[in-house]
């Protein structure tokens, strides 16, 4: 109890030391922390040992990590994820602005759009885009362009549309939250300077909203990298699909899934670094005080 401790120190005649703030301090020992830390290390070691002795041929993992078809799959993932994300960002911004529009038709459309593309499973949306030829056998722009849908809706295009549009329904909400988070006075100050709505949004509101937008978009981007694996189901040969094609032949299922895992972790790690870099840049003018 603190009061008895204090009185003990006083009776021991340590007053002068205490007053001068030089009294030695003894930290409490939290034995529980040592025990739980040790337990976790032991469990990790057991898991590592299990995998080491398990039926995984690590040589195969190393061999296929840089196999050509895996690297091509990696490249396709690296191409698809940013493209689909870009589509998701652009459409998302449009939908967010429509959602905030004073025009009730615009805002209702945006609400309906988000309801539809957030409400249905991503994989299902990919299947729908991929098979849309069943609904519209040809795509026609009068006088300009007419083509069988099957030729247009390649696995690449279907994946891009499916992932990008689905993503936009989420990013729209991120954008809207970011825009709302900017102080109302900012828009008013811009308006008072004679800046129009678009100019003020572009130069004043959005740059500030970015601070609230970038962290969740970073997370969404990481989600997108992983979501590209869904495209394996419609024959887009990204990493997972490439891995599957190999293990259908050689039966090293786990080994190739580990190869894919390693590459996903690699991309996501790079993204995480990029994100923290971007956040620091966008924080200009805000971090002080």
């Amino acid at each position: 109890m603190p009061s008895t401790g204090k009185s003990k120190i006083m009776t021991m005649g340590n007053m002068s030391c205490l007053e001068m703030g030089r009294t030695e301090r003894i930290r409490r020992k939290y034995y529980g922390r040592y025990v739980s830390g040790l337990a976790i290390v032991v469990i990790l070691l057991l898991i590592v040992r299990a995998f080491k002795n398990g039926m995984i041929d690590w040589g195969i993992v190393g061999e296929f990590l840089t196999a050509e078809s895996i690297l091509v799959g990696l490249l396709k993932t690296i191409i698809m994820a940013p493209l689909a994300m870009l589509l998701g960002l652009v459409l998302g911004l449009v939908i967010a602005l429509m959602r905030m529009s004073p025009n009730p038709v615009c805002s209702s459309f945006a609400v309906g759009y988000m309801w539809l593309f957030r409400g249905s499973p991503q994989l299902l949306q990919l299947f729908l885009w991929y098979n849309i030829a069943l609904v519209f056998p040809t795509i026609t722009i009068p006088y300009l362009f007419s083509m069988p849908t099957i030729q247009v809706m390649t696995p690449f295009v279907a994946t891009l549309l499916g992932l990008g549009i689905c993503q936009s329904a989420y990013t729209a909400e991120v954008f809207r939250a970011g825009i709302i988070s900017v102080d109302k006075g900012q828009g008013e100050a811009a308006a008072a300077l004679g800046m129009g709505g678009g100019l003020s949004m572009r130069r004043i509101i959005l740059p500030q909203a970015m601070r609230a937008i970038v962290p969740p978009v970073g997370n969404e981007f990481i989600g997108m990298v992983k979501a590209t694996s869904l495209a394996s189901a419609i024959q887009y040969t990204e990493i997972l699909n490439a891995a599957q094609r190999i293990y259908y032949v050689n039966n090293y299922v786990i080994e190739l899934l580990i190869v894919a895992t390693v590459w996903y972790l690699f991309i996501v790690s790079l993204l995480t670094i990029g994100q923290s870099f971007l956040e620091r840049r966008i924080g200009r003018g805000f971090e002080r005080r």
Partner: peptide, 26 residues
């Protein structure tokens, strides 16, 4: 039109109680 309203505003300076400077700009 919004454009004309904006133009009218641009000839009137306003100073706010809470400054409303743009924090991301010097």
């Amino acid at each position: 039109s919004p454009r004309n309203i904006t133009a009218q505003r641009s000839h009137i300076g306003m100073v706010f109680q809470r400054f409303n400077l743009f924090p991301h700009l010097t």
